[in-house]
Write a protein that binds this DNA or RNA. Sequence first.
DNA 1: GCAGTTATAATAGCTTTACTATCATAAAGT
DNA 2: ACTTTATGATAGTAAAGCTATTATAACTGC
Lengths: 224, 224
Amino acid sequence: MPTLIFKLNSHLYLRDPQNTLLGQKIIEASVDLIDRLGFEQFNFKKLAEEIDSTEASIYRYFENKHRLLLYLIGWYWSWLEYRIDLFTSSLTDPKEKLKACLRVIAEKKSYDSTFEFIDEEALHRIVVAELDKAYLTKQVDSDNKEGLFGGFKSLCKKIAEWVAQVNPNYPSPHALVSTLLLAAKQQIFFADHLPTLTNIGKGENRYLKLEIFLNTVLFNSIQE
Amino acid sequence: MPTLIFKLNSHLYLRDPQNTLLGQKIIEASVDLIDRLGFEQFNFKKLAEEIDSTEASIYRYFENKHRLLLYLIGWYWSWLEYRIDLFTSSLTDPKEKLKACLRVIAEKKSYDSTFEFIDEEALHRIVVAELDKAYLTKQVDSDNKEGLFGGFKSLCKKIAEWVAQVNPNYPSPHALVSTLLLAAKQQIFFADHLPTLTNIGKGENRYLKLEIFLNTVLFNSIQE
DNA sequence: GCAGTTATAATAGCTTTACTATCATAAAGT
DNA sequence: ACTTTATGATAGTAAAGCTATTATAACTGC
């Protein structure tokens, strides 16, 4: 059985890491390392040690560590959209699609064996902790021109279209959807570190609580 | 007439910059420099050049540039809360308080002469672009223990209490308020750099549009 | 099976950042 | 006048973030 592979924007990398053994090791180990150290403490030297390679070799795959982060986050959004498609394609009612979609967004993430050498649980923690650093930079405009945020934009657009189908008069579908996509990450982070800023809590039911929160905000906001 | 001064958490600084001329110059110039360069490109060496002082002198005021950012952001939230108090203290109905509060949050920021040596317009841009970097770090828990996020938490708590007064049964007032406070920054950033993620637009009416967006989400979400 | 291309490794070095330490001097407080 | 304190001047260190060069191994086409 052939494993699925996402075709990501080619500006994200210099050499496609999915095509080579070294590339795969870079991806696999960087997810692990960034998750453990945080993006600030992470660098190519440590990554090279981890996979018994060299800094110079990694620089042949990624221009710098910021691009690598964009790659991982791009992969994450592709994966999330793939899962949303999986759970919505059989549905016709846009309301139902939105509900299923919010479930996928809020659910607990665990290893997806469809994709080797990516630990989705760790990657999700990375996205929660580092997502905003991907675009909150001075080069956001040139990065954007190169299409490096395509994954997020594509998902946002898809969901916003369902919103528009439910209520064509709602004026801010994109703003609402981007707010909710980011809130889903932020509230998990707050629950772990700044609990007075949320009501999600730390227990296993946090995913359900988050889903309910997102549902309430979405459907009440767009009601006709 | 005595200028107002906010008493910020003393762990934010080593020496209180509000008390000395050099401290004031550090604050004033750092707002300007971070706004122009972005937080990543900003450092104490450049700041020292800007105010004709030295790196070592600045290190006597702030442990590192991250603490300086936390200081500025802390100041910003104090200022916002001060303005919210200003426009809500005469109101009694919590719904009206919330409306006035969202107006302050969404409004265009301009220089407030109550506070010398702080350019609130530039500081607002800094908060829009750098806020998330304040807490998305590996040391978030120890920073939090020191009370470095007190400004944000205090404001969030105050607004969440009004929400609870409007609808005591709404289960997630803190989550909703923190989501909206962050959304107010994000949507402005998206409007400037990733416009497909929002519907706020670039014109002068963006502040009104943002206010309406926040109002819709808030009041529809908590309706009984 | 050889020639040529390409991927990786090994090593070195350079610039900038983020700090730390030391000493001199000027100003302020008592 | 004496001393504490703030600032400035200068130097230095370790790490980060690259870049460049050469060597070697592996694969590719003929």
